[in-house]
Design a protein around this nucleic acid. Structure first.
Length: 489
RNA sequence: GGCGCCAUAGCCAAGUGGUAAGGCAAAGGUCUGCAAAACCUUCAUUCCCCGGUUCGAAUCCGGGUGGCGCCUCCA
């Protein structure tokens, strides 16, 4: 099998490059996970969804992926949050790890192969700090240990920053024991009451950045293929990881750097100070998880994405179309044998087109475009078959449905049973709009009776009444069904 | 100030040298007792502006204009 020609944008070189894993056929992926001191927000969700698809697609292309996403469970923010709730920091962190798992499961995110936590990797962290001290890249100072940025000749190569410019900003805080402003903490001496571990420099805890250097090396090796995160991690987080790892190990750290763009709230930045942070958990009470995924994937991962009710509503409308189609198709083909033989038209072309888009830097938006053709063909074959041969149509439908399954595996979309998804969506809409289902059923019964009596005026009156309540009805050969009408505007 | 990104129809959004995907919305049609859904058709001679390179540019280069991000914790 020839290796897949996947190209990806590497932040280090600022270019799209052909993915050539260090070990052919195997890919190590490290994604910076959450600092578990709170609920994750929809921006986090976008980033993790993007990398979820990256991993799924690499696997789809036959690569053996080792996927690592850490939990930072030792951190200043956690200590602060714990002080507020009265919990022990480790307990609070563990609680939010579970919450993170629940939230991401709802979004259909894959569980990584490894989800290492800082608190389980103190020996590895201390070892790499010691290595840096021994090599002269770090120095201890009153219980703290700092990385010496001036000891690293190519510091800032990822963010392409000018060191002189960086030095201009005043960075030495009173009370810090740094030699130079840019130096950053690898180890922080414990203050009374803070969680602390024993170390050669006294009791303390790891600084931010070092855990990723230590844990990525443990699970993926000193050199690995893809390191991902959102844009804001480029500096200082990823820059510092590179400095630590490459200074300690003397080899290239990550070979490809992928960074996801930001999600904003209709142009406004989501920030805690503005109080406009939208939690994933809260968003999922208003929008279907798959619709949210669709919304994320409809824009390229490196581009900015604007979160709005309108955009979410569009995504749901689209998901409904997809699931309505799948329901019809499943009804038509499930459990049937259409024999072997040729297919109608060229149904494979859509999936090929999908893969081409995905090969080009995981262009999910382009890939979704190909799906339009695929779903269009399924609807055409189901509702208005251009050929009479039922077996031919059935076989083609089966082939298309199989491609949808393959797309599901990659995008994490259409994973539910169509009926279940459609019903769930209706139930949520019913709740939101305060629709009385029993009354809807009663009116539907009245209308069915009126129609049977050919009293169409009465039937239309009932339709109008339901429409007022936000209910749209559909007459099908199997009887009348209904759904909640889309909101206008 | 430094580093970097973005600008495509009413809206969302692909496309990075070969003559503008896809979606939402809208309009017409087929189907329907009427609808809904589905399907078909229409909907950017043009890609923020001005120059340049080229046989050819939304795509490359230069200069503007307008948004945005990072440079401090941040996905």
């Amino acid at each position: 099998m020839t290796p897949p020609a996947i190209r990806l944008f590497n932040t280090m070189t600022m270019q799209k490059e052909l993915l050539q894993p260090a070990i052919p056929g195997e890919v190590g992926v490290y994604v910076c996970g959450p600092t578990v001191y709170s609920y994750i927000h929809i921006g986090n969700a976008r980033t993790f969804t993007s990398f979820d698809v990256v991993v799924r697609y690499l696997r789809h292309r036959g690569l053996k992926v080792r996927y690592v996403r850490n939990f930072t469970d030792v951190d200043d923010k956690i200590i602060k949050a714990a002080a507020e709730t009265g919990e022990a920091p480790v307990e609070l962190a563990a609680r939010y790890v579970e919450i993170f798992r629940e939230d991401t499961r709802a979004l259909h995110l894959l569980e990584p192969d490894f989800s290492p936590r800082v608190s389980d990797h103190l020996p590895e962290i201390i070892a790499i700090i010691q290595k840096l001290v021994d090599k002269g890249h770090a120095y201890a100072s009153q219980g703290d240990v700092y990385f010496s940025v001036s000891s690293d000749a190519d510091y800032a190569k990822l963010s392409k920053r000018n060191l002189d410019e960086l030095c201009v900003g005043e960075r030495v805080q009173p009370g810090e024991q740094k030699r130079e402003p840019l130096d950053f903490a690898l180890w922080k001496a414990a203050k009374p009451g803070e969680p602390a571990w024993e170390s050669p420099w006294g009791p303390g805890r790891p600084g931010w950045h070092i855990e990723c250097s230590a844990m990525s090396a443990k699970y993926l090796g000193e050199t690995f293929d893809i390191h991902g995160g959102a844009l804001d991690l480029i500096f200082p987080h990823h820059e510092n990881e590179i400095a630590q790892s490459e200074s300690a190990n003397g080899v290239t750290f990550a070979r490809y750097w992928m960074h996801c763009g930001f999600l904003d709230l209709e142009g406004a930045k989501m920030s805690k100070s503005l109080g406009n942070v939208v939690r994933l958990r809260d968003a999922l009470t208003k929008v279907d998880p798959e619709a949210l995924r669709f919304f994320f994937l409809a824009t390229h991962y490196r581009h900015p994405l604007s979160f709005s009710d309108k955009a979410l509503a569009d995504a749901e409308t689209r998901m409904e179309y997809f699931y309505e189609t799948l329901r019809k198709v499943d009804e038509r083909i499930s459990g049937k044998d259409f024999g072997k033989g040729p297919l109608h038209g060229d149904p494979q072309r859509f999936f090929t087109e999908f893969e081409s888009a995905m090969d080009d830097d995981f262009n999910t938006a382009g890939g979704l475009g190909a799906l339009s053709g695929l779903f269009g063909m399924m609807n055409e074959l189901t509702d208005k078959p251009p050929v009479k041969d039922k077996a031919l149509v059935g076989r083609t439908l089966q082939a298309l449905r199989e491609d949808v399954r393959r797309v599901s595996g990659v995008l994490g979309l259409f994973e539910d049973a169509p009926d279940a998804w459609l019903l769930r969506r209706r139930e949520r809409a019913v709740r939101e709009r305060g629709i009385d289902v029993a009354e809807v059923e009663r009116l539907l019964g009245e209308r069915t009776a009126a129609r049977a009596a050919k009293d169409f005026a009465a039937a239309d009156r009932v339709r109008g009444e339901l429409k007022q309540k936000g209910v749209e009805i559909m007459d099908t050969p199997a009887g009348t069904t209904w759904k909640v009408a889309p909101l206008q505007g």
